[in-house]
Simulated scan of single mutants.
Amino acid sequence: MDTTVHPDQQIAQLREDLLDSMDEEFELEMEDRLGEDARRPGASASSRISYFRELFRLQGELVKLQDWVVATGHRVVIIFEGRDAAGKGGVIKRITQRLNPRVCRVVALPAPNDRERTQWYFQRYVTHLPAGGEIVLFDRSWYNRAGVEKVMGFCSDEQYEAFFRDVPEFEKMLVRNGIQLIKYWFSISDEEQHLRFMGRIHDPLKQWKLSPMDLESRRRWELYTKAKEVMLERTHIPESPWWVVQADDKKKARLNCIHHLLGQMPYHEIERPAIVLPQRERHEDYKRQAVPRDMMVPTVY
Rank of each mutant, 00 (worst) to 15 (best):
R33A: 13
Y286P: 01
N113Y: 07
E54G: 07
T118A: 15
W120Q: 03
I188V: 08
S50T: 00
P241S: 13
A38P: 00
S44M: 02
D8W: 14
D23I: 00
V291E: 14
K64S: 10
E161A: 15
P292M: 11
V106F: 02
V245T: 14
G263L: 14
P7Q: 13
D139A: 14
K88G: 03
I201A: 11
K150S: 01
Q279K: 11
K251T: 02
S211E: 14
A71P: 00
D214I: 00
G82W: 05
S211D: 13
A111S: 14
R140L: 13
V63N: 02
P204F: 09
E31N: 09
A290N: 04
G60N: 08
I92D: 10
L262R: 07
E36T: 11
A85I: 09
V107L: 12
F163E: 10
T118R: 15
Q66L: 09
R75V: 01
H283F: 14
K252G: 02
I135V: 14
E216A: 13
F138I: 03
T118V: 11
I275Y: 13
V69N: 00
T127A: 07
I182G: 04
S189H: 06
R15L: 10
I78C: 12
I79L: 14
D248M: 05
L19H: 13
I258T: 01
Y160G: 02
K64Y: 03
Q279W: 10
P204H: 10
L223Y: 03
E233F: 07
R282A: 11
P278Y: 13
F197D: 01
N100M: 08
D166C: 03
V175C: 14
M231F: 07
T235R: 04
Q193T: 01
K251R: 10
R293F: 14
N144S: 15
Q10G: 02
S217E: 09
G87M: 00
C257T: 15
A227E: 02
E16A: 15
D8T: 05
P112I: 04
V70D: 08
N100F: 12
P112R: 08
R145A: 07
Q13D: 14
E27G: 04
E269G: 02
Q97M: 07
V69L: 10
Y51H: 05
R234Q: 15
G133L: 13
D84A: 06
E27K: 01
A227M: 04
V126P: 02
G263A: 09
P204L: 10
E61I: 00
E81L: 00
T225G: 11
V5G: 01
G132A: 15
Y224F: 15
D2Q: 06
F163N: 01
D139L: 07
Y224C: 12
Q123C: 08
Q66E: 15
S141R: 03
I270L: 10
K251M: 02
K250T: 06
I11T: 15
E16Q: 15
N177R: 11
G35S: 04
W208F: 15
L255R: 07
E239S: 12
I201M: 14
Y224I: 08
R48Q: 10
L99H: 09
R272D: 12
H74C: 06
F154H: 06
L18N: 03
R40V: 01
P266L: 11
M198E: 15
V103Y: 12
W208C: 07
K183G: 04
T118I: 05
D8F: 12
W142G: 03
A290D: 13
M295V: 05
R282D: 02
I135E: 09
P241D: 12
Y286F: 14
